[in-house]
């Protein structure tokens, strides 16, 4: 780099490009624009939250903002949602969501880390071709796979209430299979950043691949695995399509049950509001507490570097 006279010019303040742009944009209009966007993004959710605490009659007859003029609070909606029986009691479905999500996050991450290790640090014939194929399969939308997979699961006896584990296997398998291409690709990117000498020297010392994988790679890959884990958690927790196609009413995750309730009990706004809030608070908590990992993963996936 050539030394430009910039250093001598008395630049009063170091501004980044957007900051400079903002300086002029920080007219009242610009602040107003940012404010309007922020309001637009908050008010709908606030409406849901407030509605979930209003009594049934109020929710059904007046808009949620009436709470400011006619305050009335109740926990009754949440009580129904948690302890109710039948389709309005959502607790069993939250349990379903957990039972679906835990294996559907752990298993693909572990499998993908193994595969990524092999693609990055092992030698075998056809490695590049195989990697490109897996990479290319990212483009397959899951819509293309559902009907043939459903047929396959039925043939294997994994589908339906009487299947082993009440039919959970088809959900676990599907989520695992759909996650693998992206997981292998993302984790491989991280894996390549580990210095090769580390693995080479371990090999020299007579360590097997399994030992290297478990003792050297695994700890180093933790942040990357966490990043992908959050992506996968959100994907599985918030999934509707896979749950509807492969799940039955008894193993529906909360999201699918909520979708069903909105159809059958569409006028029970008070229950829908509290139910929706319960279903979205869990991913929100996970998301907020692990945000820094998530942003890293997100960027690795779309704007690495």
């Amino acid at each position: 780099m050539t030394v430009t006279p910039i250093a001598q010019v008395p630049v009063a303040e170091k501004l980044t490009a957007p900051a400079a742009a903002k300086k002029t944009l920080t007219s009242p209009w610009a602040s107003l624009a940012a404010f309007v966007i922020a309001v637009f993004w908050t008010v709908p959710t606030a409406g849901l939250l407030i509605s979930s605490f209003r009594p049934e009659h109020d929710v059904k007859t007046t808009g949620w903002w009436h709470i400011f003029t006619h305050p009335s609070f109740t926990f009754e909606n949440y009580r129904t949602v948690f302890s109710g029986t039948g389709e309005t009691g959502l607790f069993p479905f939250i349990v379903n969501s957990i039972a679906i999500t835990v294996p559907a996050v752990i298993i693909p991450i572990f499998l993908a880390t193994m595969a990524a290790y092999a693609f990055a640090w092992m030698r075998f014939p056809g490695k590049d071709l195989l990697f490109i194929m897996i990479f290319a399969l990212q483009i397959v939308p899951i819509q293309v796979t559902l009907v043939p997979l459903l047929n396959l699961y039925v043939k294997l006896g994994l589908q339906g209430q009487d299947a082993p584990a009440g039919g959970f296997y088809s959900l676990w398998l599907s989520h695992t299979m759909f996650a693998l291409p992206l997981a292998i690709f993302l984790l491989h990117n991280f894996m390549r950043e580990i210095p090769g000498e580390l693995i080479e020297s371990a090999r020299m010392d007579g360590a097997t691949h399994v030992q290297i994988f478990l003792r050297v790679i695994f700890p180093l890959m933790m942040p990357a695995m966490a990043a992908f884990g959050i992506l996968q958690f959100l994907w599985v927790w918030n999934d509707l399509l896979v749950a509807l196609v492969f799940g039955g009413f008894k193993i529906y995750p909360i999201n699918a049950q909520l979708a069903a309730l909105a159809g059958t009990r569409g006028s029970d706004w008070h229950l829908l509001a509290s139910g929706a809030f319960v279903s979205l608070i869990i991913p929100l908590i996970v998301f907020l507490s692990l945000q820094r990992f998530f942003v890293r993963g997100l960027l690795a996936g779309s704007v690495k570097g």
């Binding site: 043939p148 997979l149 695992t176 693998l180």
Partner: peptide
């Protein structure tokens, strides 16, 4: 080395084949 690398890579490759490649062609 070959057998070990297959142990690392085949489970994932097999699942991707069953879960994505075969159904796409079938569809």
């Amino acid at each position: 080395e070959l057998i070990q690398s297959m142990a690392f890579v085949l489970p994932a490759v097999g699942l991707v084949g069953v879960g994505l490649l075969y159904p796409a062609i079938n569809s």
